[in-house]
């Protein structure tokens, strides 16, 4: 967390962020006046029970949803008011998503799956292959490039998904329960991969409800009932 003087622009600056849903006659505050900043290079775990607002925060940080009020600056750019197409471009170029259930296209090879974000970034076909192979190499799956998801283990599938998230060189990796569908040993493997990527400089925000996973992050944001109730910095365990 060595911050240079004078305070550089944080990667994520969220102020008074609020998101409400109407559930029948009631209004539910899924996220209630949350203010937080995250700097480049941080590895942050977002913790909380279900319904605490962590998924809502995740969707807002990932530009999949818009807040009802408050501000969200990503890398200095106010994104709350952007058009749907502009948000798509932000998701495409600045954010990499990793999901609990991997969300790989089942009939396409690992390589095709990793190339998918570049299809929407307008990258030439030759470059797509080159960059996708490099991304697969960085997660240790270069030799599995022509395999389909069904021919890969759960851990391997998640690594393909991570390669897909990395392929457009995003500012931010957003992982939503990335180990939720994996056994303990494989989970450790994936967490270790996140830590290695983080050491290389990528910012990671990881949503989880498991304290065992949060141990590996340097900072833990605790949510309950839509509010940020704790912001804890810790010495992370090293997974691998």
């Amino acid at each position: 967390m060595a911050s240079d003087s004078p305070a550089p622009e944080p990667l994520i600056a969220v102020e008074h962020l609020t998101r409400r849903y109407r559930m029948g006659p009631q209004t539910v505050h899924a996220l209630d006046d949350v203010t937080v900043t995250i700097r480049r290079g941080e590895f942050v775990a977002v913790m909380g029970p279900s319904g605490s607002g962590k998924s809502t925060l995740m969707n807002l940080l990932g530009c999949l949803d818009r807040p009802d009020s408050g501000q969200y600056r990503l890398d200095g750019q106010e994104v709350a008011g952007l058009s749907s197409d502009a948000l798509a471009a932000v998701r495409n170029r600045s954010i990499g998503f990793v999901f609990q259930s991997f969300n790989l296209l089942p009939r396409q090879t690992a390589l095709d799956n990793v190339m998918l974000p570049m299809v929407y970034a307008g990258v030439s076909r030759a470059q797509r292959v080159e960059r996708a192979l490099a991304a697969l190499d960085s997660v240790g799956l270069w030799e599995r490039a022509r395999h389909r998801p069904t021919q890969l283990s759960g851990g391997q599938q998640q690594r393909v998904a991570i390669a897909r998230a990395l392929v457009n060189d995003p500012l931010l990796l957003l992982a939503d329960e990335p180990t939720g569908a994996l056994d303990t040993a494989t989970s450790l493997e994936i967490i270790g991969l996140f830590q290695r990527l983080n050491r290389r400089g990528i910012t990671i925000v990881l949503v989880t409800h498991e304290p065992e996973v949060a141990r590996f992050a340097a900072r833990v944001l605790q949510f309950r009932d839509g509010r940020l109730i704790d912001d804890l910095r810790q010495e992370p365990e090293v997974a691998a």
Partner: peptide, 16 residues
């Protein structure tokens, strides 16, 4: 539906 959700998440515009 999930494929569409994924494509939107990784940067597909509605037009795409």
């Amino acid at each position: 539906t999930r494929e569409i959700g994924l494509r939107l998440a990784i940067g597909a515009r509605r037009r795409d």
